[in-house]
Each structure stands twice: as structure tokens, then as C-alpha cells.
């Protein structure tokens, strides 16, 4: 277990170096950009010094690493805030959206996949295929705008798509940064409802996009499991259909599904950007894109680092989940 965690250290070091070098390779000069259009040479030079960009790159790198070791990720110039606080505010918003979308997506796609696998070639299977193809082929910003148009603009049943909360509700106290959890923790159900309402449309948008891989993988894994020897044995032994399906087949099919889930989660976090823009969601994707456009080094590095750490953690969690799902897998066994 700790060995497994230790293996991720070189990954993180690599990410720190690469993200630093890549941001330096971005086109454009942040000092010039942030000095504003009317600035003269002297004021650009002043800003270059203030940003520490007058020093050699190697020295900048060591300053960056030194700060990082003390937990200081630097100051984002474009948002004007410390990168750490930006991430602390925005990462939970993105995670909340992605997690809710994934739960929603799993709730639909896994049963759908199972149904499709047990009745291959029937209308359920075709429905699954149509839904999945539609979900993956519609770009998220398009689905988002269509949903806003239908449910907010035409029908008026969805709340204003203006981010985490509408104008009326108060932000819950910042405990985890996840509005649903925070509101529940302090027992403010009105805010909880407000936050949940805001979450529905963007979550559906993202869920539609992530349906496909999960449903397809569930179907394929279930088909493989159902055609394997131990299922035939189980059926021959006279076990009930339900028991065969859920205890033996599904349990075995879950492993590839979890792997896919991990991958889907990571790309959903990236695919968030467009959903965040459309729903004015204050998430991490739009933050990174804006920082990238203006060569805001500290913010881009912070974002890459945070994502890398998260994926390391995610992989760890998935590995751990394997051991839960399948007791045959262990880390020390070898």
C-alpha cells in the first residue's frame, strides 16, 4: 500500500518539471500582456521584475520548487488571487459537477448495459445503442445550450443557468466546497435545494456525454461473463436467474467497468470546460483555459499539478476498489 503510494512520487516530480517547462514554452510574454496596451518599455520592465521573470529560467524553477515545498503555488495574475485559493474554490465545484454527473450516468448506463447484455438483439439493446451513440456524438456545449433552451428558455422549469447558486440563495459556509455537502452539513435545506436545482442541467449534459463508454463496457463485460464456464455451471446447478446474474456475472463484470469509470472520470473533468462556460459554472476547467490564453504561468502550473495529484489519487482509489470487488487481487500477495 505505501509502496503503491511511493510509486507516484516520481510521477509528481516529473509533472512539476514538465509543467514548468511547458508553461515557459508558451508563446507570448506575460509581462507585456499584463502591463496593458498603453504601457511603455519602463513599465513593462518593472512588471517583469515584479513577476520575477527577469531571472534565468533555472533560478525561476528553483524559486518555484522552493515555494511549492512550503505550500505556496504562487499568485495567479489573471485572477489576482493565490493559485492555491483559486484551486480550493474551483476544484470542488468541478468535482461536484463531475461526480453528480457520473453517479447519474452510472445509474442509467449500468442497468442499461446489463439489460442490453441479457437481451442482445432486442429493442432494449437497440435503444441502448441509440442513446449511447447520441450521447457521445453530441458535443457537450451543444447539449448544454439545447437543454437551456428547452428547460429554461422555453418551458421555464429550470433555474437561471448562472452557476453554482441563483441570485436568491446564500452560499453555504465553506466546509468542503461541495455545496450539496456543505448545505447538508449545516442543515440548510433551502440552499441545498437551490444548489441541487442549479446542478441538474449541467449534470445531465455531462452525464449524457459519459453514458456511452460505461454502458458499452458494461454490456461487453456482461456478455463475456455470461458466456463463461462458471455461469454455465451455476445455471446447471440450478441457481436462480437473479443470483446468477447479479452475484456471479455482474460481480465479475464490474472490474473492467471500474477501470472505464476511472478513465471516464478523468476525461469528464477535462470535458467540463465547455459545460462550465455554458452554465457559468465556476470550475477548474474554464479557469485553466483562461490562464493558458494569457500565459499565466503560476495558474497553469498549479492546475496541472492539482490534476496530476488528483489522477494519482484516483488511480490509487481504483486500485483499492479492485481489492474490494475482487478479493483475489492484493498488493502484497506477490
Amino acid at each position: 500500500m505505501s509502496l503503491r503510494a511511493a510509486q507516484s512520487i516520481p510521477v509528481v516530480i516529473g509533472v512539476v518539471i514538465i509543467s514548468f517547462l511547458l508553461t515557459r514554452a508558451l508563446p507570448g510574454d506575460p509581462a507585456v500582456y499584463f502591463a496593458g496596451a498603453a504601457a511603455d518599455e519602463a513599465s513593462i520592465a518593472e512588471i517583469r521584475i515584479a513577476l520575477g521573470l527577469d531571472k534565468p529560467v533555472i533560478q525561476q524553477f528553483f524559486i518555484y520548487v522552493g515555494d511549492l515545498l512550503q505550500g505556496d503555488m504562487g499568485q495567479s495574475i489573471s485572477s489576482g488571487q493565490p493559485v492555491a485559493s483559486d484551486l480550493a474554490n474551483r476544484l470542488p465545484a468541478s468535482l461536484e459537477l463531475t461526480l453528480v454527473a457520473l453517479i447519474l450516468s452510472c445509474g442509467i448506463s449500468i442497468p442499461l448495459g446489463i439489460l442490453a447484455a441479457t437481451r442482445p438483439g432486442t429493442w432494449v439493446d437497440h435503444l441502448c445503442r441509440v442513446l449511447v451513440t447520441a450521447g457521445v456524438s453530441l458535443p457537450t456545449f451543444f447539449t448544454g445550450i439545447v437543454l437551456i433552451y428547452l428547460f429554461y428558455y422555453l418551458l421555464g422549469i429550470a433555474p437561471s443557468p448562472i452557476g453554482h447558486l441563483d441570485f436568491i440563495s446564500l452560499d453555504p459556509d465553506h466546509i468542503t466546497g461541495f455545496y450539496l455537502i456543505d448545505a447538508a452539513l449545516i442543515g440548510d435545506w433551502e440552499t441545498w435545494l437551490g444548489a441541487a436545482k442549479q446542478l441538474i442541467l449541467p449534470a445531465i449534459t455531462l452525464a449524457l456525454f459519459t453514458l456511452a463508454p460505461i454502458a458499452r463496457m458494461t454490456r461487453a463485460a456482461m456478455l463475456t461473463a455470461l458466456s463463461s464456464d462458471f455461469i454455465r455451471t451455476a445455471r446447471a446447478a440450478g441457481l436462480s436467474n437473479r443470483k446468477v446474474l447479479y452475484v456471479y456475472a455482474f460481480r465479475n463484470a464490474l472490474l473492467p467497468v471500474i477501470t472505464t469509470l476511472g478513465m471516464v472520470f478523468s476525461f469528464a473533468l477535462g470535458a467540463n470546460v465547455l459545460v462550465e462556460k455554458v452554465f457559468a459554472w465556476p470550475g477548474i476547467g474554464s479557469y485553466a483555459v483562461e490562464a493558458l490564453v494569457v500565459s499565466d504561468y503560476a495558474a497553469v502550473q498549479g492546475f496541472v499539478l492539482a490534476m496530476a495529484l488528483m489522477f494519482v489519487a484516483l488511480n490509487l482509489v481504483i486500485d483499492l476498489l479492485y481489492t474490494v470487488v475482487d478479493p483475489r487481487i492484493g498488493f502484497v500477495a506477490k
Partner: peptide, 21 residues
């Protein structure tokens, strides 16, 4: 006066047409 940042022009347009802002 509440100033909200909404990056997508399509969303801003829906909001002003509906009169919610």
C-alpha cells in the same frame, strides 16, 4: 447591483430575454 460573470454569450442572451437579469 449584482454583477454576475457568465462566460457563454448564448446563456447571457437567454437570461436577458427571459428578464431574469
Amino acid at each position: 447591483v449584482v454583477l454576475r460573470e457568465v462566460p457563454s454569450p448564448a446563456t447571457r442572451r437567454a437570461l436577458i430575454e427571459r428578464g431574469d437579469v
